[in-house]
């Protein structure tokens, strides 16, 4: 095979895979420009082929949530016994709940930053509700750190029940946060 033919074949294969990735991104609902970019640079967009766009705006805690949950996932990976207690589904659910809560805080922040809104009645209450929600997200992130410690203990003491209890506690706090936050923030925003 001549060098020119080899280059042309490799280029054709690359574009073919790009076409497949672009089709998948289009199917998931990404903008047309993203799908078009995948034709040229599909390796850089490969990670998006398994996630549909959620439409959630990143909030003020986004980077911390990402970092805390990545660290938790790493700790679970490093401790084989933990993977039977904390599965990928639990981690994914925790991540999604936290991102949803964070996105709601971001939406309220956006509202509070609107010019002329500070004089409106109820803004103070909305601000307080927003701060409470933010504190609750922080508390859940602190709980994630404690869960990591518990997973570390699992390696030495084999305390599976402790990890399970901590995870259960965390899940119920996140669920409560979702219900409470959605209710309080919505009521304040409407008033």
């Amino acid at each position: 095979m001549s060098p020119n033919l080899l280059v042309a074949t490799l280029l054709g294969l690359y574009l073919l895979v790009g076409l497949g990735v672009a089709g998948r991104l289009n199917q998931l609902g990404y903008p047309g420009l993203t799908a078009a970019s995948a034709m040229v640079a599909w390796p850089l967009l490969w990670s998006a082929t398994s996630t549909a766009p959620s439409g959630l705006a990143p909030g003020p805690h986004h980077a911390r949530i990402q970092a805390c949950l990545e660290a938790l996932a790493r700790t679970v990976r490093e401790e084989p016994a933990a993977s039977t207690v904390v599965g990928p589904a639990e981690l994914d659910s925790l991540r999604r709940s936290l991102f949803r809560a964070d996105a709601r805080i971001a939406a309220v922040d956006h509202l509070l930053n609107e010019p002329g809104l500070s004089d409106e009645p109820g803004v103070q209450a909305l601000r307080q509700a927003r701060n409470r929600a933010s504190d609750q997200v922080e508390a859940v992130l602190a709980g994630v750190l404690q869960l990591r410690v518990q997973v570390g203990l699992l390696a030495l003491a084999g305390d599976t029940a402790g990890v399970r209890a901590r995870l259960g506690d965390l899940s119920s706090r996140v669920a409560a946060l979702e219900e409470l936050e959605a209710g309080t923030l919505l009521t304040n925003a409407r008033s």
Binding site: A41, L44, A48, A63, Q66
Partner: peptide, 16 residues
């Protein structure tokens, strides 16, 4: 700030 798959996908066209 954009370390998540959907953000990469949305930023990619403009960065390219």
């Amino acid at each position: 700030d954009h370390d998540r798959p959907e953000a990469v996908a949305v930023l990619a066209p403009r960065l390219l």
